[in-house]
Amino acid sequence: MNTLRPPVKVALAESVGVLARGDGWAYEPKFDGHRVLVFRDADGVVLQARSGRLVGSAFPDLAAAARRLPEGTVLDGEAVIWTGGRTDFAAVQRRAAATPARAAVLARRLPASYAAFDLLADGGTDLRRAPYERRRARLVELLGPLGPPLQPVPMTTDPELAETWYETLPETGIEGLVMKRLDQPYRGGVRAWRKLRHTDTRDAVVVGHTGARQRPGALVLVLPGDDTPVVSSPLAPGLRTVVGAALAGAIPAGEGTATAVGVGEVTYHRVVPELVVEVGQQTTRHGFVTVLRPKEN
């Protein structure tokens, strides 16, 4: 019935330094979660991460909730977890990395919500060429009767309200705004949207390290909105000791491979994602990621 099948390339956003103003702009809070596409068809529900990886087994609670959607629906959004009134990026990455056996336990302890921000297909009809304004209206109409944990993200066309969101929502874990043109189609793999973040630094979850755990050479990280591990630039000597102490209680999870800028594929030691670090990142997707400091729990 549905013409869209995973993997589907997701739409992306370009970082900007100012709020877009003028007619025809829409503004949404930018949630830091795990990017997930939801496919509901006659056979059930499939969840796809940004990388194309299928993650339904890691989020059984969201997969179960998505069965309430009409057949032929495809959503784009973020899986998020709320703890203490804030979004918890480390917790959602822990969910995303869980084995099927562990996933059910974590789903009860750390239930996920789904912040939907786009509708790619409705009743089997591909809507990606339709303007955002039309997709948004149908998204709200579709999810409104269902309620949590599937919810549309807030949206406004008022730049003053958007600016208020930008100034007041960070205390809830919202890192900024996403700006879209009302007449814009959904362009997978293209940075056609704009994102305005508060700082040039971001939080990242540590999923592994190179070298000894007590004094790692680099960290392997997952950044908000992406599930593809990236290798940081080499840690400064003093930071290696600090990070090594923060990793002291990390649970080993075998070995993996990731791509390091300028080096290629490297083997690293995987750990259960518990540690969050603050990083600086160049605006280009494949730029260096520099670890600044571990974040306090």
Score class of each variant (00 low, 15 high):
Asn2Arg: 06
Pro6Tyr: 15
Pro7Phe: 14
Lys9Gly: 08
Lys9Asp: 11
Ala11Thr: 09
Ser15His: 12
Gly22Asn: 02
Gly22Ser: 04
Trp25Asp: 01
Ala26Lys: 06
Ala26Gln: 07
Ala26Trp: 09
Tyr27Leu: 14
Asp32His: 04
Gly33Leu: 05
His34Pro: 00
Arg40Ser: 04
Asp43His: 11
Val45Glu: 08
Val46Ala: 06
Gly52Ser: 13
Arg53Glu: 13
Gly56Asn: 05
Phe59Gly: 08
Phe59Cys: 06
Asp61Phe: 03
Leu62Arg: 14
Leu62Thr: 13
Ala63His: 06
Ala63Lys: 10
Ala65Val: 03
Ala79Arg: 12
Trp82Leu: 03
Gly84His: 15
Arg86Cys: 03
Asp88Ala: 10
Asp88Trp: 09
Arg94Phe: 05
Ala97Trp: 08
Ala98Met: 03
Ala98Gly: 02
Ala104Leu: 13
Leu106Gly: 05
Arg109Ala: 14
Arg109Tyr: 14
Leu110Asp: 07
Leu110Met: 13
Ser113Asn: 13
Ala115Asn: 04
Gly123Met: 08
Gly123Tyr: 11
Gly123Arg: 12
Arg129Tyr: 00
Arg129Pro: 00
Arg134Met: 07
Arg134Tyr: 05
Arg136Gly: 00
Glu141Val: 15
Pro145Ser: 09
Gln151Asn: 05
Gln151Arg: 13
Gln151Leu: 14
Val153Gly: 00
Thr156Phe: 04
Thr156Met: 07
Thr157Val: 02
Pro159Arg: 10
Glu160Cys: 11
Ala162Ser: 07
Thr164Ser: 10
Leu169Thr: 03
Leu169His: 03
Pro170Asp: 15
Gly173Arg: 09
Glu175Gly: 01
Leu177Lys: 11
Leu177Thr: 12
Met179Leu: 14
Arg181Leu: 06
Leu182Phe: 03
Arg187Pro: 03
Arg187Asp: 04
Gly189Lys: 08
Trp193Ile: 14
Arg194Asn: 01
Arg197Met: 08
Asp203Ile: 00
Ala204His: 05
Val205Ala: 07
Val206Arg: 02
Gly208Cys: 04
Gly208Thr: 08
His209Cys: 01
His209Asp: 01
Thr210Pro: 01
Gly211Lys: 10
Gly211Leu: 08
Gly211Arg: 10
Pro216Leu: 07
Val222Cys: 00
Leu223Gly: 02
Gly225Cys: 06
Gly225Thr: 07
Pro229Gln: 05
Val231Trp: 05
Ser232Tyr: 02
Ala236Ser: 06
Ala236Ile: 04
Ala236His: 07
Gly238Ala: 03
Leu239Ile: 15
Leu239Asn: 15
Leu247Gln: 11
Ala248Arg: 15
Gly254Ser: 09
Glu255Arg: 15
Gly256Ser: 02
Val261Asp: 01
Val263Ala: 07
Gly264Gln: 09
Glu265Gln: 11
Val266Arg: 08
Tyr268Lys: 14
His269Ala: 10
His269Pro: 01
His269Gln: 14
His269Asn: 12
Glu274Ala: 13
Leu275His: 09
Thr283Met: 08
Val289Asn: 10
